[in-house]
Simulated assay, not measured.
Amino acid sequence: MKNLICLFALSGFLFACNAPESQEAEAATTTQPEESPVTYQPIDTDEALMATALMAAPEASREGAKVIGYNMAGEFVTFKEGTNEFICLVDNPNQEGFNAACYHRSLEPFMARGRELRAEGKNANEIFDIREKEVKAGKLDMGETGATLHIYYGPEAQYDPATGEVDQAQYRYVVYMPFATAASTGLPERPVEPHHPWIMNPGTHRAHIMITPLTEGE
């Protein structure tokens, strides 16, 4: 009889111990509501061009950044004036994919000269050579050493109107160090591993440190 009573008592104890675990397991497997998928829209208005260009700037600096570039009518305009150190360049709507940029104001003479030469029909090599000569001659200002260019780019000109984020876009950063070399910086002339910093165009006016961050999932 005593054994039977002990057996009942033990069964009750085991049930009491297992019940919370079963409830926790059930709660853990409860289906969570799924997030609504983002509906991307074409970047086909001036407002969309400006919103996506500002994504290239650091978040805290977007409100005060100046925005310039080609509008949907093909005119080079100022979309909005700025109050801080950044100038954002909108994606060119006449080119495939998406490519917006944001750079330090001190780089504007260098950037503007490049746009001017491109408008004249000069190719990339010609633009490089002309600006190299002009910088060395003191005719063209390269801006502050260490001035940065932030690039926001991707394969699709589609964006989320709620956030300004562009479909599949990622960031790349350029730090301009005119005439710097691997020896003067300690950086390699090729990335040692993917996403490692390296120096491009060393020893020239356009010497710069390339930094490509990891993307989500890498």
Rank of each mutant, 00 (worst) to 15 (best):
Q23S: 09
E59N: 12
H205R: 11
Y152V: 06
F128S: 13
H205N: 15
A183S: 09
F15P: 03
G217I: 13
P194R: 09
G12L: 01
S11R: 07
E81A: 05
S61K: 11
T145P: 09
A25C: 07
A57M: 12
M1Q: 04
I68R: 10
F128H: 07
M1F: 10
L149M: 01
A48L: 03
C17I: 11
N3R: 13
E26I: 00
S11P: 05
A101K: 14
D160E: 15
L107I: 03
T145A: 07
A207Q: 07
Q168R: 15
A53H: 08
L4H: 10
I43N: 02
G82R: 09
P202M: 11
R62V: 10
A16E: 15
P194V: 11
C6V: 02
I5M: 00
V38W: 02
H196G: 04
E126R: 03
V192P: 07
L89P: 01
Q158E: 14
A100Y: 06
P188F: 15
G154V: 09
E116W: 00
F179V: 02
V135T: 10
E156H: 12
P37I: 00
Y103A: 08
T39P: 01
D141K: 05
A100G: 14
A53N: 06
R115A: 08
Q95T: 13
G114P: 05
A119F: 09
V166E: 07
T83I: 09
D167S: 14
R172Q: 14
R113T: 03
M50G: 05
Y173F: 13
I130L: 09
G114N: 08
R62N: 13
V166P: 00
D91L: 03
E132K: 05
Y153N: 08
R172L: 05
A183M: 06
G121D: 14
S61R: 04
F79M: 11
R172F: 07
F8Y: 01
V175I: 13
F13W: 06
T83P: 02
R113E: 13
A19I: 06
I151L: 14
N84E: 11
G154N: 09
Y153M: 15
R118W: 05
G74H: 05
H205G: 04
L7G: 10
D167N: 14
Q23R: 10
P109E: 08
A9F: 05
A207L: 11
Q32D: 01
Q41F: 03
C88K: 02
V77T: 10
R172P: 01
C102H: 14
N71E: 10
D91Y: 03
R62F: 15
T52M: 10
A183C: 12
R62A: 15
Q32L: 02
A16N: 03
E189L: 13
F8D: 02
V38C: 03
N3T: 04
V175F: 08
E63C: 02
I127K: 06
P202F: 11
N125K: 04
F179S: 01
D141R: 04
E120M: 09
E96P: 02
F15W: 03
A119I: 12
T45G: 06
R206C: 05
F110P: 01
G114K: 11
A162Q: 15
K133I: 04
R118M: 14
G121F: 07
I209C: 12
V166S: 01
P197V: 12
A157H: 13
G12M: 07
A51F: 02
